[in-house]
Write a protein that binds this DNA or RNA. Structure first.
Length: 300
DNA sequence: CGCGTTTGACCCGCGC
DNA sequence: GCGCGGGTCAAACGCG
């Protein structure tokens, strides 16, 4: 499944708009860490964890199938992927779920016919089968006692499934904004129940409803949590939660460019994972200030 | 009443 | 072709 759609780590790094901010040595170190570490569940996400920058997903999508080469260490499907074709930035998402799928008016009409037929046949006519176009995905692991981490957006749960070989169910969330197509999956690690794996899919088409300080802190429109789709995440923030999650590894969106560019070893804090919250709090006190600082570093 | 969660059924893709 | 597992739908329900 998803293992097929992994991304090539190094290529992604090099193609990353943040590549300039990752000294080669740092990158190597990070890769080494990724390769050498035998982290159990970490391996499950090994590739994605090391996604060089979440911003790649939105700025320079990478073809998935062609570039998948990183799954050799992942016995279990990976949790994130970059699956958009390398078209122009922002090419995929805003046009809703059907975007990218080859469905035009004709197919739409056909679909409606089929749907009518289904309606006659079944009690519960379901949505028709267009080829599902996967949005870019991005996953990270968080050490937290709460499953659903606050990330600045409002989510509505639309499903929950038992995960094979895991006692923990996987929850499916969708952004409550009607125009927004972003989804996320939340599941706990089988190996370490204290770890929450969150997988985002898609792009927010609206500003974060609870990130008022983003703009105030100097976030230019389009550079961060804005509606124009340049970047789409509100980075997970834990401002109000009693639990302070620990973001794992280099893959955390929070250390894309920030920590890695300053201290390559920071991301392997405690040998396994890194706690960006505390690090950021040192300098900024609030995670909301981090996002702008991250962006501003890019500008430097 | 509106919004979010729960949950069983259904759909779809993939591997065998 | 079939079965399995992931993903989604939508009715029912709960809560403020």
């Amino acid at each position: 499944m998803e293992t097929k759609e992994g991304i090539k780590i190094e290529d992604s790094i090099r193609s990353s708009p943040f590549a300039d901010h990752f000294p080669a040595s740092n990158l190597a170190g990070m890769l080494d860490f990724e390769e050498k570490s035998s982290l159990g569940f970490m391996e499950l996400l090994g590739i994605q964890e090391f996604n060089p920058s979440i911003f790649d997903i939105f700025q320079a999508p990478i073809p998935s199938k062609e570039s998948s080469a990183l799954t050799q260490t992942s016995p279990v499907p990976a949790s994130s992927e970059i699956s958009n074709p390398p078209m122009t930035p922002n090419c995929s998402s805003i046009s809703s779920e059907s975007s990218g799928a080859p469905n035009h008016e004709q197919t739409k009409a056909v679909d409606e016919e089929q749907e009518q037929q289904r309606t006659n046949k079944q009690l519960k006519p379901k949505k028709l089968s267009q080829k599902r176009q996967r949005e870019p995905r991005f996953a990270f692991m968080t050490k937290s006692e709460v499953d659903h981490l606050e990330d600045g957006y409002r989510w509505r749960k639309y499903g929950q499934k038992a995960v094979k070989n895991s006692p923990f169910p996987r929850s499916y969330y969708r952004c409550t904004n009607a125009t927004c197509n972003v989804k996320k999956r939340v599941e706990r690690s089988f190996n370490d129940p204290s770890i929450v794996v969150t997988t985002y899919e898609g792009k927010h088409t609206h500003p974060s409803p609870v990130m008022p300080r983003a703009n105030a802190a100097g976030l230019p429109p389009g550079s961060g949590c804005s509606a124009d789709g340049a970047a789409t995440f509100a980075l997970p923030v834990q401002l109000t939660l009693p639990h302070r999650p620990q973001y794992f590894n280099n893959f955390s969106p929070l250390n894309c460019g920030y920590l890695s560019s300053t201290n390559p070893t920071a991301s392997i804090h405690e040998g396994r994972f890194y706690t960006p919250t505390s690090a950021f709090l040192k300098d900024h006190g609030l995670l909301q200030d981090i996002v702008p600082s991250l962006m501003m570093r890019k500008e430097e």
